[in-house]
Design a protein around this nucleic acid. Structure first.
Length: 436
RNA sequence: GCCGUCUUAGCUCAGUUGGUGGAGCUCUCGGCUGUUAACCGAGUGGUCGCCGGUUCGAGUCCGGCAGACGGCGCCA
């Protein structure tokens, strides 16, 4: 006996299986019955397809099973593919064999949904077309990042998730018991990456990052995935260009692989295509302030960080992501060096996404001045002795180097055009939620 | 840390001046041979977030607590 060949729904919708008999397996997406005919819209990972189950075309017991199986029941169907204008997608399956693998209980997620309820039912809501489309795009983004860096000679380099030091500020650390000691979940790969470049020169990494920020916004997660790069011999200008190339590369991969998903999410393909072919502007913080004050009628004092409102105004002013460099050095982390040409500012940059999706990349050249870093760590109240190994990197063949981190979820949210970052990750962790 | 909104059926919500808790959807049963989150008829389903107070009487008024959601700050 030959093994059953299972067909995926996308093959049928492409027209390849017209008038052929196929075997399908998946889940009931919608079902309607009308006397002696039952319409089962079935889904698998690749799409949805209408199946017509008519009494007489299959054994009566199977017809009755089809009639009573509820949404999300898992099923196997056999039948002939017919072109039919009345069916969504233009093709339907005329069922001759129906096997219910599992009769689902009444599915809790129905037409009316609140965000809170959907988060409680996250494990079930993952099956929705919306979430499935976003997760497919996320998968492309993650794959694109690996390809982008590997194609350019970067090695993947892993840092510990349990780290003794802070990197981005002590108040945002998740503390973890470590035998009789304590440690913290990684806030950044960066400090370890700075050790790695002396071995591999160009490295990247993508992994979970934990920040206990008390942020309740549509742009923040307590656990998110950051894609970071670090490279010896590169300066600020070099990494800004790498960042722009990376964004464009990700977009091109999405446009190539996820046209269907963008359609389901009602995202504008042309708009993304245009951005993927654009040059992104680089401006300094000072220029950004001037644009905001002169062109947007705002009144921002030099020296304050750009807030959400200002970033959004700036994003509106350009239609592409924009790189902002040279923020005031006082508001920056200790590892960001002063710009010798403009000592009030740091050799750092943020990439701001269009349409209010905020900072998608943050990076800098790295500080080589140990005394300066010690001074700034002390000012923050950080124990300098914890950074002894890090300062060693400046003692044994120190070189100019730079790196940045890209927020995977923010990029996915921007590409998908969705209003909350929570939907870009299967099980979001936020200030107030860590279940399911 | 600051500010705001919400909490009534499995889901989404309405509930008038304080007077025996409702609708739609889901689900169950019946009908229907082309439906598009179908339609028609019937039915099941309630600790009105919790605690206390006022009152003859509280979903409704008052006080407290809890939870959820969102905005700002901070960040990717």
């Amino acid at each position: 006996m030959s093994k059953t060949t299972w067909t995926k729904i996308e093959e049928i919708l492409s027209g390849n299986k017209k008038d052929k008999e196929v075997h399908l397996r998946g889940w009931i997406y919608r079902t309607r019955s009308s006397g002696n005919i039952v319409f089962i819209t079935m889904r698998d990972a690749t799409g949805i397809l209408q199946a017509t189950v008519k009494k007489g075309n299959l054994p009566d017991s199977e017809f009755e099973d089809g009639k009573k199986a509820l949404i999300e029941s898992s099923i196997e169907l056999t039948g002939k593919v017919k072109e039919d204008k009345r069916a969504p997608g233009g093709y339907e399956l005329q069922v001759t064999k129906l096997n219910v693998i599992n009769f689902a209980e009444p599915f809790p997620i129905v037409k009316d949904q609140s965000p809170e309820f959907l988060l409680d039912q996250r494990h079930l809501w993952l099956r929705s077309r919306k979430l499935a489309s976003i997760l497919k795009i996320r998968s492309t983004v993650v794959g694109a990042i690996h390809t982008f860096f590997r194609d350019r000679g970067f090695y993947e380099f892993d840092a510990p998730v349990l780290q003794p030091n802070q990197c981005e500020g002590g108040s945002t650390l998740f503390e973890v018991k470590y035998y009789n000691d304590k440690t913290y979940l990684s806030q950044s790969w960066q400090l370890y990456a700075e050790a790695g470049i002396f071995s591999l020169e160009k490295i990247y990494n993508m992994g979970p990052t934990f920040r206990a920020e008390k942020s309740k916004t549509s742009r923040h997660l307590s656990e998110f995935w950051m894609a970071e790069m670090e490279a010896a011999w590169m300066d600020l200008h070099d990494i800004v260009e790498v960042g722009k190339d990376e964004i464009r590369f990700i977009l091109k991969q999405i446009l190539k692989n996820n046209k269907n998903e963008l359609e389901i999410l009602e995202q504008d393909y042309k708009k993304l295509k245009q951005i993927s072919e654009s040059e992104f502007p680089t401006i300094t913080y000072t220029e950004a302030i001037n644009i905001l004050n002169e062109k947007e009628g705002m009144n921002i004092k030099w020296g304050k960080d750009l807030r959400t409102l200002e970033e959004n105004k700036l994003a509106d002013y350009f239609n592409t992501p924009v790189a902002v460099t040279n923020y005031p050095v006082e508001i920056m982390a200790f590892y960001k060096p002063r710009d010798p040409k403009d000592p009030k500012t740091a050799l750092c940059f943020d990439m701001i996404a269009p349409e209010g999706y905020g900072e998608i990349i943050g990076g800098s050249q790295r500080n080589l001045d140990v005394e300066d870093m010690k001074k700034r760590l002390k000012a923050m109240g950080e124990p300098v002795e914890n950074y002894k190994w890090y300062f060693d990197l400046r003692r044994f063949g120190s070189v100019p180097h730079a790196g940045y981190g890209l927020g995977v979820e923010r990029v996915v949210a921007w590409i998908c055009g969705i209003d909350n970052i929570k939907d870009t990750i299967p099980f979001p962790r936020t200030l107030l939620r860590f279940r399911p």
